[in-house]
Design a protein around this nucleic acid. Sequence first.
DNA 1: CGGACGAGGATTTTT
DNA 2: TCCTCGTCCG
Length: 839
Amino acid sequence: MSQLLENLNEAQRAAVVNYDGPSLIVAGAGSGKTRVLTSRIAYMLEQGVEPWRILALTFTNKAAAEMRERIAAMVSPEKSQRLWMGTFHSIFLRILRVEGDKLGYPSTFTIYDTADSRNLLKSIIREMNLSDDTYKPNAILARISLAKNSLVTPEAYQANTGYVAEDRQRKIPEFSEIYKAYVRRCKENGAMDFDDMLLNINILFRDFPDVLRKYQERFAYVLVDEYQDTNYAQYIIIRRLAQLHSRVCVVGDDAQSIYSFRGAKIENILRFRNDFPTARIFKLEQNYRSTQTIVNAANSVIEKNRNRLDKVSFSAGKVGEKIKVIKAYTDQEEASMIADEIRNRVRTSGADWIDVALLYRTNMQSRVFEEAFRRRGIPYRIYGGTSFYQRKEIKDVLAYMNLIVNPRNDEAFRRIVNYPSRGIGDVTIGRIASAAESAKLSLWEAVSTLDPEVMGLKGAAANKINEFTKLIRSLAEARESMDLYEFGLEVVTRSGIIGSYKLEQTPEAQSAVENIEELLNSMQHYAEQVESEPLYDPETGETVEGATASPSLIDWLQSVTLLTDMDEEEAEERDRVTLMTVHAAKGLEYRYVFIVGLEENLFPSLMSMDGAEGLEEERRLFYVALTRAKEAAVLSFSETRFKWGSMDFCKPSRFLSEIDPKYLDAAFDLGGEEENPVAARLKRNYDDHNARSSSNDGYGGGAIIRGEAARRFRPAGGQSAGARGGSPAEREGGSPAFGARRSERPEVVEPKPQVGAGTRFRSMGSRVVRQEEADAVSREAVTGGFFVGQRVAHASFGAGTVLAVEQSQGDNKVTVQFDVVGKKTLLCKYAKLVSLEGR
DNA sequence: CGGACGAGGATTTTT
DNA sequence: TCCTCGTCCG
């Protein structure tokens, strides 16, 4: 027997060995999913399957990299290297780079991230003379995204009377026009957004059967990880690719489907059998991660969901301790109690900080915990916030490079033409834009080919534009003659970006410079990596003799846009408590898990509660949270909570009472069916008070927010885009294995964007500052806070010296003489001072 | 063009 | 509450 099979249990082994037909591997939490998937691929390789015939799709770069590494160790790095393994986006990007010209895209097309898309959308809305009050860019973007994910093109959208009627009813009748304009502009700019990569692959496969055939033949085996998170577009791609051989293997856990707000459809995994009636189903039901208590408790909750695959999850491990439930009266107190609990636990169990994770439903909740940890000197790290590649300084540098690679990229042009400031104002840009439009050129093409006078530019404006043009041209030349890193250096210096930050002399500017340096390092790193690898012919997987790929700017740029902060490598593995959202915790495990804020309307979230589906997803989210714990879990809730400046009274989450009480250690009533009498009375008083004051001031208290948040797009009808044939990508018949069968069922594929969904931007470099802060403050806690004469730094005031420290009930006041801005008195609580001592 | 100031918005977010 | 964005001045 192959060594690969030795350490697998019966079910796992069956899932590994039977690779020659359609398979559904239902992998419960902690059941060794990754192990099975990697073993299966390794086993296939061992059995003589050529690596380039295997397509393995994941959702994160991290997952792909991890699998590749494991397979390299199991079989050989060479074979592992030649697998087509990566995220949906990176794999299909690779294909689109080759085939994109058939759809009218340059091979150097740019990828727009969410921020780019939103900016473009904003300008479209403005140009159409629509108010961005009614046409909220984020909401529009989300709706476009869901339309694309459902393979509904603008034309299909407009042809669909249901959608159009819905938009009229929603008072956004121009939506389809915006959608149309957005798609057109992206194409003119030679750009694709994230969703386009999936949509365009579908269009490609639909309109070019020979191309589809080529990839169907190449990918004799298709594997998909986290199948429960696939959306409609991804589902159709998989179906198409697998049509020829039907050797498709999907792995996932319906109980962990938590991304429906991004278009993921749990139905894909629930009904896999409908698409592939001959599929074998392998259930991995033994949980190797958690104690029996945790697994059973999690089961007792998830059982309340109706939309599930039939599966039992069990642990053969220790029974373990009961799940402790902590009640607090305020969110502040919750944070203190949890922080104490964490400290005690680490102390008594001999665990490290890194063994502890704190999970919450919303990022907002992290703040109080940060403060509590800081006060106690508990080191922590926060996941989330602005990812590295979203930072302003990074996006600016990338925009220079993007413009050089793709001269049609107007968004990049607009971003950098006057950054750093070179005196090119709106008027000038407006003139260029109108000249460009009438000449049917992109902004850069206009500027670099048209006579300035033709564009109505003279004098200073013409000179400045000329300077800019020369700059970009010479940078483009630099790219030809230099290696990647040198070119990068050239860009950041000649553009003046580094110079302008160096002038600023603030901590943020310093951090920006460091981030840019980091970016250049990553270019260097990338180049070295590419040069060290042999060149493979993707068609045959053969090594091209004596050749290595040359690191290209476009490849680097594209790989960079597909990275997220989850992919960031930990700079130093340090011993810290991890704080993150439950979503971010998926796939991770910790000895001790603390799930906080278990209150109605927070977890489960108010926003997802307008239907049974929403509640079920929240429940799955809770399931994910609980099953992250290996040894013990602690849950907490508070009876009151500050939300946006005012206090809210909260009921304990229904999930608490849904856990079978025999697994709980709670010294009080969890609410359950009845109301907590004290909280109820308090709430009545509070509501009365609010009602009175709001009728006076005419603002209606929190109702404005509630009303807004509660408003949702409703589906146009019961039918899906695919089923109704609204999508041009879906007109074909399909094989007997899928096709008709699929469309029978009324799917829920409506475009359902969330109001206000979108990327949150935290302040620039926030994470960097925060980490330093955490360190600094741990030290302080030991020395007992700030002291006179201490050198400190403030995010906006810069460096200074502490003149006085004043203690008044929890709020430490510090007077600081700042080197640049003078004397200020600050509340420690808000000022986020960083100690500069002892560095 | 940059700073100041006020309004408005604030789930989750693999790419 | 706290952050970001847009606008309005100097």
